[in-house]
Simulated assay, not measured.
Amino acid sequence: MPTSLQIERWGPSLLACAVTAAWWWFDGAITITFAKELLGALIGAASIAAGFLATSLSILLPIASTSTGSKLRRSGYRALLFEYMRSAIFSCLLLAVVAVVSFFSLDEHRVGSGVAALLIYNATFAAAALARVTEILMGLFERGSEPDDKGG
């Protein structure tokens, strides 16, 4: 049985593989009817998400001097958190790049199947990585807003 840390670490990749495989299995296609709008929306969403993550990183850095930051450092989880942040930021940036490249793979009917599969994988991974980081950050911010002396 996988541990919660293993699920947290591998969840975005496994989810992206499963969604892409299901999309491929059901002969998913990104048709020309809505491809341009979808690709434009993905570029915008990926850029906004990357900006959100960069802002969260700048908010997270001062936590290092708090008791929560000390606990993260001692547990070894801080390095993992920064790996998750880096992964999420880069996956959002890569999603924007893949969406731009997808514009060039449009033919008369749809986005090329290989590029579309890459787009589906990357969009799913980016969304899952963003959700993972958001969940962790919310937990950190909740802990950081609690007083160190809970007894009063």
Rank of each mutant, 00 (worst) to 15 (best):
S87Q: 10
L81C: 05
R86W: 09
L53H: 05
Y77L: 12
E83S: 14
L42C: 03
M85A: 14
F26C: 08
I89E: 06
I59G: 11
E37Y: 06
S58W: 06
A49C: 10
L94K: 14
L94M: 11
L53F: 07
W25L: 13
S58Y: 09
T31N: 10
F26W: 10
Y84G: 13
L72C: 01
V97Q: 13
S67M: 07
R78K: 14
S47T: 14
T68F: 10
A50G: 04
A99M: 01
S65Y: 07
F52C: 05
L61T: 13
A49P: 07
W25A: 11
A46T: 04
A96V: 04
R74N: 02
S87P: 05
R73W: 02
I63L: 15
I48P: 03
Y77E: 08
T68R: 11
A79T: 05
K36E: 13
A41D: 15
S65C: 09
E83H: 11
L95H: 07
F52P: 00
F90N: 15
S47I: 03
G28V: 03
E83L: 09
S56F: 14
C92N: 15
S91W: 00
Y84C: 10
A35Q: 00
S87F: 01
G40S: 05
L60M: 10
S67L: 08
E37T: 11
L72K: 07
S56M: 15
L95T: 08
L94Y: 06
S65G: 11
R74H: 04
A35G: 01
L57R: 15
A41S: 15
I30A: 06
I48T: 14
L93R: 14
R74Q: 03
T33M: 05
L80N: 06
P62T: 01
G69D: 03
Y84W: 04
S70M: 12
L61N: 10
S70W: 09
V98F: 12
F82A: 02
A96H: 12
L72D: 00
I32Y: 07
E83K: 05
T68Y: 04
K36F: 06
A79D: 13
A41K: 09
A35I: 01
A96K: 12
I63R: 04
C92P: 03
A64L: 06
A29G: 06
G76I: 02
A54D: 09
R78W: 09
L61E: 06
E37V: 07
L93P: 02
A99R: 06
P62Y: 02
G51F: 07
L42E: 10
M85C: 10
F34I: 01
F90T: 13
R73S: 04
E83T: 10
I32Q: 08
V98Y: 11
A96N: 11
L39G: 02
W25G: 03
E37G: 14
